[in-house]
Design a protein around this nucleic acid. Sequence first.
DNA 1: GCACATTTGCAACCCGGTTGCACCCCGGCA
DNA 2: TGCCGGGGTGCAACCGGGTTGCAAATGTGC
Lengths: 138, 138
Amino acid sequence: MREEESILAGHGVKVTANRILILRALMNARAPLSMTELETRLETIDKSIISRTLAAFKEHHLVHHILSGDESRYELCHVHGDHGNNDDEHVHFFCEKCRRTFCLEELEIPAVAFPEGFEVSEINFVATGICPDCRKKA
Amino acid sequence: MREEESILAGHGVKVTANRILILRALMNARAPLSMTELETRLETIDKSIISRTLAAFKEHHLVHHILSGDESRYELCHVHGDHGNNDDEHVHFFCEKCRRTFCLEELEIPAVAFPEGFEVSEINFVATGICPDCRKKA
DNA sequence: GCACATTTGCAACCCGGTTGCACCCCGGCA
DNA sequence: TGCCGGGGTGCAACCGGGTTGCAAATGTGC
């Protein structure tokens, strides 16, 4: 069984050709992908399927959902095992100029003491500004 | 001169009736407001004006732009003075159940050492999960 | 091989947000 | 006071990300 298939199965997602392709695209990406980006990378797959697949992936804790810039983006969870805790999440950076999203993998999201009663399932830490490339050009 | 007017003028935004109303709505809110919420609070004002006004406010560092849940939200900057640095930003919490956004004013966004070259202008720290109210009900 | 569940693909739709454009209002100036 | 120019306003049309309804296809278990 290929790696993609065992990841899907391991998270309780039924294996299909489309899901393998979508998963593979996410595995190959160096930054979180938006639906639009997945659509262009996977021309054969309809956006409705991508939408539904990402929803399924999210439900089974296979991807994180990141709000950065103007589109939602999705990134594979790196913690393997499906317990869905979120200690692998890192900081992202959105460049206002080139509108790219960067993973700052080396920056873990700092722990924060949430008040009693708040049950946190996911954290979004996105900085906005100008990336090194765009600064140089300016 | 009323408080609203001096805030607008102080940030270099020309004073108009609509802008005063929008600013006042933001001042009275206990959590960041989305465009839709502003529209319902300010029935007389067209959404295009709200959109343009918020863009102007943002440009003049009068509001923060928060990505939480399904809509963008806007919140007044509390730092007075228009230098636009962001040391008053705090953590937000989005409840997946009731879809409300909470300000956790007491939780400052922890400092993070961004790599060389990244010029950060704003930080979004939004936790997602279940709020105390919804947990009780469940 | 058959009945049932799930997935797929397409089109239509929804909705937050923006834009184009004509009109209005206000401030400056003669 | 009357005219001029520029920004602000309001409406409608539009845009684009994302979802949904539905019928056909594809599996899956018996």
